[in-house]
Design a protein around this nucleic acid. Structure first.
Lengths: 134, 134
DNA sequence: CATTATGTGGGATTTATTCCTATATAGGAT
DNA sequence: ATCCTATATAGGAATAAATCCCACATAATG
């Protein structure tokens, strides 16, 4: 297990990582919790949440874009894309015509009825770059 | 107000739409609630939540990608993109090299330190297409 | 083993969203 | 202007998601 990036290897962590890989779907934290509970009936949700975000930080697993904990609305209904600051969670719109025409591979389109394609750029905004403190 | 798509125009709805446009940021439902509360001290959160999703459905406003209510993890840390079924909320990975090289406009990069760019395709998966019911 | 920095359980708390239902009201009909 | 009723709202309760807290447990090092 390539997880020696300065953190301990516990049975819970092994089980959580296995669960993320096992489900095949893209599980949410509670699905992982339920899966792991079978082997570790006493595991706490906090452990699952902590471990999942730790693993995401260390790039052991990924996640689907999710900005903060709440859904974010946007008055702009024109075609546009998003810059998302990972530090302050502000979202900025940007336009790029070349991004509006993206066509997923034909094999993908064959099994998926496409409605809309959006590009999300994750990074750090200028303001947060100035704020040196970390 | 172009909102005569078969729904009523209430003062609350006007205020909510104004709030989404006013804030400039991409507000979450609670930010809209707090903003509207200034004029409508008795408005209920339920009204705000209902109205926002109604407006999103009718394409009066948009939202930043948010799949369901919970963050979704992904064991795949390789470069890839996502197909998101709007009906069952399953998420499928796909790869497309041409999507891995997307460069936002220079003006954008100038004010944003880019980490990662991901393409999200929203639509309906085959299984849900078969399921005729709606 | 013995030590200790790190991790865990589980219950409480906070935050986000939705449900429920009695009451109010927009908007077409009168 | 007033009535009617389908639709919308308030506000409180319920559910869901994520996080906090801290006494206790345990990986990893020597």
């Amino acid at each position: 297990m390539l997880r020696e990036q300065g953190t301990r290897v516990t049975p819970q962590r092994v089980a959580i990582l296995r669960a993320v890989k096992a489900t095949g779907i893209h599980p949410d934290a509670d699905a992982v919790y339920r899966h792991v509970s079978r082997e570790h009936p006493h595991i706490s949700r906090d452990t699952v949440y902590r471990t999942l975000s730790m693993m995401e930080e260390k790039n052991i697993i990924g996640s689907v874009l999710f900005v903060g904990n709440a859904k974010r609305y946007d008055p702009n209904t024109a075609r546009h894309h998003h810059l998302i600051c990972l530090r302050c969670r502000k979202i900025f719109d940007f336009s790029a015509e070349k991004f509006d025409l993206l066509e997923p591979p034909a094999s993908t389109l064959a099994r998926f009825q496409m409605f809309r394609t959006t590009v999300h750029v994750e990074g750090i905004c200028v303001e947060c770059q100035k704020r040196k403190t970390m």
